[in-house]
Write a protein that binds this DNA or RNA. Structure first.
Lengths: 210, 210
DNA sequence: CCTCCTACCTGTACAGTGTACAATTGTCAA
DNA sequence: TTGACAATTGTACACTGTACAGGTAGGAGG
């Protein structure tokens, strides 16, 4: 109940709004009441991360190739994290040895094992893959949080003008790419590309082994 | 001078030690003195990120292939960030439109341009590449910061025992990979692999275009 | 019925955070 | 000598996480 409220609050007003006083006031109790259920705020955050992990759909299509299975799994993880944009960062820092995290790791290792990777290699790749996916969400450009979009597109316009006004002899590529650099990225395109890049890397590493 | 002191303090005692009172006391000055030079603490952190960016060696070997150039550049960025383990996280959050960041982006775009990518594609890839490299450092496993290594290897041992004690019918892969999962990673191997994975992805994307 | 135990919560307090605002110093040009 | 300016100080405020001690409801066992 507490972590659900915390997640809701974080999603509604950003992770920095999740303060003990704020959260407990929301629930109509005293700040110190929280410490009966959690030893510290950090433990609460850990609980939030664990809850997010549990939302990931871990089912795999047994008839698909391991590449397709991996893409599906990482894709479902990605979509879960995209539903929790401001709490996704919790997964990147926290060790996350929760039930959900273990199960997710198990499935990824299994898929990679069937892809021909040894346990050691699979471990390395799984680590990078999970970390890369959360990094994708956390690092999404142009998510300037809670400012109205009017300010946002204005900032984009000023960014483009700034880039275009750079000395072309020193920054030819920046000037050339001023528009794509400053324009807001379509989220679907951005995430699809990130996933493609990651999977391309993994598949290439697999191919090199043969 | 201020950002140098802040960087030194962060490196010596962790980023959370960089508090305004602590930093200014270190310099023999009053907390509010900082606000003459920076509008806010966030601006100070931005300055720190910018300073780190400037350390990156941006020279490229003109006789090398674009793949080699990219590897060298990202590698030098990686080594700079590894020198600042506890401040590297600043680069991942901050927009970093500093001089150094612009120059780095320019060089990466240039290399990718010679790799056959359009400005738009190069922009996408550059974003992911820079973000992935900082993510590599920030997400390095087993950097439990400032605890003595005695506690660390003990924690590793307990992690391994825990993984091995999981029900093998539910978590066969975790049990199988208990050792690589719990063992400390050799940093050089870890980072080399991360870089390989990233570059393999980029090169594969380049090859697919032809 | 009374007592005790346990689960849960409250009240108060403390040290630490970033920073607004006004007053103060040192230094150098007119 | 008088300003003007850069740089710093002093005080204060609202906020953070949390230690510690005490309270309260409800049910089990005597």
């Amino acid at each position: 109940m507490l972590v659900e409220a915390a997640l809701a609050l974080a999603e509604a007003e950003g992770l920095e709004a999740v303060t003990i006083r704020r959260l407990t006031k929301e629930l109509g109790v005293t700040p110190m009441a929280l410490y009966w259920h959690f030893r510290s705020k950090d433990e609460l955050l850990e609980g939030m991360a664990a809850r997010i992990f549990e939302e990931i759909d871990l089912s795999v299509d047994a008839s698909a190739t391991w590449q397709e299975q991996l893409r599906a799994l990482l894709g479902s993880m990605l979509s879960v994290l995209r539903d929790h944009p401001s709490t996704a960062i919790l997964l990147s820092t926290r060790t996350a040895s929760s039930e959900g995290s273990l199960r997710a790791t198990e499935v990824v290792l299994d898929i990679l094992g069937r892809g021909g990777f040894s346990p050691t290699e699979a471990t390395q790749i799984a680590r990078h893959a999970l970390s890369a996916v959360t990094n994708l969400v956390v690092g999404e450009p142009g998510v300037v949080t809670r400012e109205d979009s009017g300010k946002l597109i204005d900032a984009q316009r000023r960014a483009r003008i700034f880039l275009e006004s750079l000395p072309p002899e020193r920054y030819p590529r920046l000037v050339e790419a001023a528009t794509p650099l400053s324009a807001g990225v379509d989220p679907d395109t951005y995430f699809a590309f990130g996933l493609d890049l990651l999977l391309a890397g993994i598949e290439t590493m697999a191919a090199r082994k043969c």
